[in-house]
Write a protein that binds this DNA or RNA. Structure first.
Lengths: 169, 169
DNA sequence: TATTGTTATACTCTATAACTATA
DNA sequence: TATAGTTATAGAGTATAACAATA
């Protein structure tokens, strides 16, 4: 007996129960997106968390490790290894904080800016040509605005991205 | 020197860069929702994955472990422990497959149905009173429909929920 | 006394491979 | 030869606690 004999793909009765609930749809899509974006970034040898960090440094260069960790919603312990990786690849570097000798500030290097440009193109391509290809421009704007309000109400203001961390799926 | 001296909360320049991109918003919200729903379910001593499984069995009782694993997008190895837990708590039970002696079918027990009812109320309360409280009824429908189309285009049809598995955040 | 960066440790999730009993 | 369930193992990822240097 094979699997097809047992599962005629017809037990789909009320299963759509959850499928029309935004809370469920959002959780499902969020996980899917993280996995897909991770795959798209793989050729650059970076993970979404590196993308997040490079993007943050582009807009706010010279933050301390703690500040970066807070913005990205990750622990400062993890930050250590993250900065280590970027530094080892010449994408960013640590400098002593000008007035607080306990702290390091993190700065983007030219190689980091260039890598971010490539990652940005990958992100845009994924979003426009793959994820949202089925929506019109107006619909994309409507979606973005609704999501913005939901995210704001949830306290997810600013550019923080706890979703892009961790392992996909 | 204190943290506030260094971070006047003003380095928010172009950081909204990603914040208006649906791909990013969805990933961010998905992660947030998983964490919140996990917290809401904690009093019932179950995780979102148990909720998913109970919900699936309600609509399609008697699936084999493999079939459940496929629907929920988890590995069959993990399925073993999951069924073990539900069985130990009297929420579901294994029965020998009527014709394939290698397989077990999984069936919901009364205690499982009751627990699912409670979990359903928690889910609805979270979605309506917390997550989507800021949207009107019409806006919620618009959001659900846009998400449905994006999910369908991504191949996330049916009631599968890879997003509710794993650890939150 | 609190904070920054760091390291060590344990705990959870997940991914792979192998085993058994069946088909 | 392939499949269902199971188990063991190793690998990520994360969370906690502690430490030295500095505030």
């Amino acid at each position: 007996m094979t699997k097809a004999d047992r599962s005629p793909a017809d037990h789909d009765g009320g299963r759509a129960r959850l499928a029309s609930h935004p809370a469920f749809q959002l959780a499902q899509l969020g996980s899917h997106i993280k996995g897909r974006f991770t795959a798209h970034l793989a050729p650059l040898n970076i993970a979404p968390r590196h993308f997040d960090m490079l993007a943050l440094l582009t807009d706010a260069d010279g933050l301390t490790q703690q500040q970066i960790a807070e913005e990205l919603n990750i622990h400062r312990n993890v930050m250590v290894g993250l900065v280590d990786e970027l530094e080892a690849r010449g994408l960013a570097e640590r400098r002593r904080h000008p007035t607080d000798r306990r702290a390091y500030t993190v700065h983007l290097l030219p190689a980091g800016r260039e890598l971010l440009r490539k990652a940005d193109r990958i992100f845009d391509g994924f979003e426009n040509d793959e994820l949202l290809a089925t929506l019109t421009t107006a619909e994309r704007q409507t979606l973005a605005e609704l999501l913005r309000r939901v995210a704001a109400a949830a306290g997810l203001h600013r550019g923080v991205h706890p979703a892009f961390h961790g392992s996909p799926e």
